[in-house]
Write a protein that binds this DNA or RNA. Structure first.
Length: 185
DNA sequence: TACTGGATTCACT
DNA sequence: GTGAATCCAGTAA
């Protein structure tokens, strides 16, 4: 694609819920593979968030914005987050992408021919893009790029409280693009 | 040093 | 719908 416009660091210097919503329709590119963000989740200082207690792992949520936060979960998956609003605890979990470029590479990494299963979940998309903890704490715009891509009309943006997490509170929100086949639920 | 459980996914039933 | 896979960060000792 020509004329790709990267997001500025200031884009991430805002409330985590606002950033989570505005990330829908943006393009994530890493290592020649890319996808459009179709589902996000906002985490800040609520009991279900790593940032609820500041530790060596989670301090990045307080210390930075516009950085990549990658953590390892369930012994086999990675999850990709973007930090927001330095000085306040916040990060947006990228929950699903619509694959754009490098689909064959994604299929090989995911060991499947089913396009719908490539990036329709936070663990899946990290595997498809090849993102690991090596990318943790990198600045967005380095190895991992995020570009303007598609404008999602407001009526197509759905906001729900995150369910299924026992400690969920009203500080904890999920956004997704209505009717997009890659949304994880 | 040892223990515990997780911001998930997949293969089953 | 249910359970297994699998390892590391956080916590307690």
């Amino acid at each position: 694609m020509e004329n790709k416009k990267p997001l500025s660091q200031d884009f991430f210097k805002a409330d985590v819920v606002e950033v989570a919503q505005k990330l829908l329709g943006k393009l994530i590119e890493f290592n020649g593979v890319s996808g459009m963000i179709v589902e996000t989740e906002a985490y800040r200082d609520d009991p279900a968030s790593h940032g609820h207690k500041i530790t060596k792992r989670s301090e990045i949520m307080l210390r930075t914005h516009g950085h990549v936060y990658v953590y390892f979960i369930y012994g086999m998956y990675h999850c990709l987050n973007f930090t927001t609003n330095e000085g306040e605890v916040g990060a947006v979990l990228i929950r699903a992408l619509e694959p754009i470029e490098g689909i064959e590479e994604m299929k090989a990494r995911r060991n499947t021919q089913t396009t719908k299963n490539l990036t329709s979940g936070p663990g899946k998309l990290c595997q498809a893009l090849g993102i690991t903890k090596k990318q943790n704490d990198q600045i967005i715009g380095g190895e991992i790029q995020v570009y303007e891509y598609q404008e999602i009309p407001k009526p197509h943006i759905i906001l729900t409280p995150r369910i299924g997490i026992t400690k969920a509170t009203d500080l904890h929100w999920r956004f997704y693009v209505k009717d997009n086949p890659y949304v994880s639920r």
